[in-house]
């Protein structure tokens, strides 16, 4: 077994780098879209600081539809769009497009949920201090939910590891691709198991780092 793995060393290293690349870049872009969307979902809701039921309902629908589409179908459906943006539809960079679009609605809901944890009394207190909406969003809603947002960020990154493996099936590269090509198509169970161990390790490391950071930053339960 060791020999096979060592023989595939370069392939495995490349796969790991591809996976980390896809997950990092798509998580960041997913937040670039999902964070403002989540804030908007929260602030336009009934009783929110920007109450607007029409916008809220439309956004809610868009997010729900986005979250309902199976990722593997999204990848295929987005091929023309991906080609338009990246110039090709195959490879790790091309996979980032469906990864971002598939996870941004998920991020929006996670962010919305984090903001819902903020005590509405603190928002009222800020209003009474003369805070405008921008200040309330930045200092109160986002500022008070940083630990929760960090925890959501790690959930997103870990979810995207799973998604990126699926993207591997359509030629995106990465560890998922290796698991399918060697483990599934060539019946090399040892290679498949090894890539699995690598993915588990990545998940554990992400969970550990972000969990530690969130707990370190959170001052709410510190007695």
């Amino acid at each position: 077994m060791l020999e096979t793995i060592l023989g595939l060393k370069d392939v495995l290293i490349e796969g790991t780098i591809d996976t980390l690349y896809m997950v990092t870049v798509s998580t960041l872009f997913a937040y670039l879209i999902g964070l403002p969307l989540g804030v908007l979902l929260f602030t336009t809701a009934r009783g929110g600081i920007h109450e607007n039921t029409t916008v809220n309902r439309v956004l809610g629908w868009v997010v729900n539809i986005g979250r309902s589409i199976p990722f593997i179908i999204l990848i295929v459906a987005l091929i023309p769009f991906t080609r338009l943006v990246i110039g090709k539809a195959i490879g790790a960079t091309a996979a980032i497009v469906p990864l971002v679009i598939g996870s941004a609605p998920f991020v929006a809901r996670l962010v919305e949920q984090s903001l819902e944890e903020v005590d509405p009394g603190v928002v009222e207190a800020a209003k009474c201090m003369g805070a405008d909406r921008f200040h309330i969003i930045v200092h109160v809603l986002l500022g008070e939910s940083v630990p929760s947002l960090i925890r959501g960020f790690s959930i997103t990154a870990i979810t995207l590891i799973g998604y990126s493996a699926m993207a591997g099936a359509v030629g995106a590269g990465g560890l998922g691709d290796i698991a399918i090509r060697y483990g599934y198509h060539r019946y090399q169970t040892d290679v498949m198991l090894f890539t699995l161990v690598l993915m588990i390790a990545i998940v554990c490391i992400i969970q550990f780092i972000f969990g530690f950071a969130a707990n370190r930053i959170d001052k709410k339960n510190r007695a």
Binding site: D119, G121, V122, E124, A125, K127, C128, M129, G130, A131, D132, H139, V140, G143, E144, V146, P147, I217, D218, K219, K220
Partner: peptide
Amino acid sequence: LKAHRKTGVVFQGYNLLMQK
């Protein structure tokens, strides 16, 4: 906003920023 600054409010539940 200006009027808000002329009136201070102390809430029953204090409503402090817990992360600050």
